[in-house]
Write a protein that binds this DNA or RNA. Sequence first.
DNA 1: AGCTTTTTTTAGCCTTGCCTAAAATAATTT
DNA 2: AAATTATTTTAGGCAAGGCTAAAAAAAGCT
Lengths: 225, 225
Amino acid sequence: MQTISREDYLKAILKIEEEAGSVSNQALVEKLNTRPASVTNMLHTLAAAGWVEHEAYKGVCLTDSGKDIALSTLRKHRLWEVFLVDKLNFSWDEVHQWAEDLEHVGDEELTNRLDAFLGHPAFDPHGDPIPTAQGQWSDGRNLIPASKTVEGDRIQLKGVVDSGESYLKHLDGLKIELGLILVVSKSLDFDESKILIWPDGSEASLSKQTLQNMLVEKLSRKGKE
Amino acid sequence: MQTISREDYLKAILKIEEEAGSVSNQALVEKLNTRPASVTNMLHTLAAAGWVEHEAYKGVCLTDSGKDIALSTLRKHRLWEVFLVDKLNFSWDEVHQWAEDLEHVGDEELTNRLDAFLGHPAFDPHGDPIPTAQGQWSDGRNLIPASKTVEGDRIQLKGVVDSGESYLKHLDGLKIELGLILVVSKSLDFDESKILIWPDGSEASLSKQTLQNMLVEKLSRKGKE
DNA sequence: AGCTTTTTTTAGCCTTGCCTAAAATAATTT
DNA sequence: AAATTATTTTAGGCAAGGCTAAAAAAAGCT
C-alpha cells in the first residue's frame, strides 16, 4: 500500500469542502481509505505547516496557501491524466493511479510546459475542469445529472461524478463515452431509470444510479430548433 | 533532501560494476552522496530481497533479478529524459532530476507505451543507450573520448561521459551539442588540449578534461573519402 | 437529564531510510 | 610485525506516516 501524501490530504479536503461544505475527520477517513488516528495526525502536520485550520473535534478547512497547493496538485494530476489518455492511449478508467504518482513530480515550470504540450486542455478525461496556472477553475458549464432529464431531451455527456474504475468500465460496456449525444426516450417512474437512444438508433435502459453519475449538457429538445 | 530508493542503489551498483568491475561501499557512498552506514543498511535490505549478493567487508554484486530491475529503471529514466527534451523542450542539463522522480512511476506497460510514443529512441539526450524492454543495451557504437583523436580527424559528438549539470552547461557555452561535427585542427602536446574547428569555420581550444568527457565517433580524415 | 453511539483524540508502537559515533576489520606503511 | 590509516559494520536515534487500542468529547435517543 502507498503512503498518503500531504498533497493528497489537501486535495481530499478541497473536494469534500465542495461536496459537503464542511470537512469532518470521518469524511477524510472514507475518502482516503485510512484510519481516524492517521487523519488526526496528518491534520496536525498540515496545521503546523499553515495549510489548514484545525480545531479539535470541530473539523478542518483550507487556508489560502493550502488551497493553492491543493489546486496546483489537482492541476498536475489532471494534466497528466490528459497526457496518459491523449498521448499514451490509455483509457479513462486506467489513468487515475498513475496520475496519482505523476502529480508529485515536477515543478510549476514542468507543469506549464506539459500544459502547453497538451494544448492547454480545459478538462481532463473524466470531464473535470483543469485549474489554470493561476488557480482558477470555475468551469462555465452548467451540467446536470442525466437523472434530471426528461423525455425528449437531447443530451451530451460532458463528465462523470464518479471516476471510479468500476463505474467507468460500466459505461465502457454500454458504449458510453465523453462527448456522446443521446436522446431521452422514456422515463420510467417506478424505478427512476430511463430509456436512452444512441446516435445509431439503438436503445438501452440505464439505472437511476448510472444516470445520477453522468453529467450532461442539455442540447435541445428532440426535433426542435 | 530526497530519499534514495532501492532502485537508485541498484542503478548505482550497475554503473559502478561497469566502470570499475567491483563495487565497494565507498564507491556507493560517493556515487549516491550518502554515508557509509546508510549504504551498509541498504545493502542488507537489497540482499534480503535477493537483488544483490553481499559479503561483509567484501563488496557487493547484482543478482540476475537485481540487474533486471536496474536495467528497467535505467530504461524508464532515459525514456523520460527523452520525453522531457523532445516533447517538453527542456535542455539536456535540466532533465536529470525530474527523470529521477519519473523513473519511479508506472509499470512495464506504461513504459512501453511511452517508448512507442517517443518512437523507440535508442539513446537518451546525453547519448546513453536506452535498454530495450528485454533488458538489452549493448549499443553497437564504437565511441572514443575526444582526447584520443589526432590532427585531421573529423569527429561527431555522440555522447558524454559526465552528464553533470555543470559540464553540460560548459558544453552549451561552447555551442557544443550532440550530433555536432568537428575537425581536429591541432593537438597541443604540452597540456593535451586540442584546437577544434566548427562547421562554420570558427575555432576553439578545448581542455584535456573537456575532451575526455566527450564521446565521439571518428567519421573520416579531413579531406579523405 | 441520562444513557448510548459515534466521532475524535491520545498513547504507544511499527516501518523505512537516514544519521552520528564508536567498534571492528582490512589495507598500507614503516 | 607493528603501527597507522582507511573502510565497513554495529549500535542507537531521528523523522514521516501508518497502525491499534483505549480514552475523551460530541451527538443522538428516551
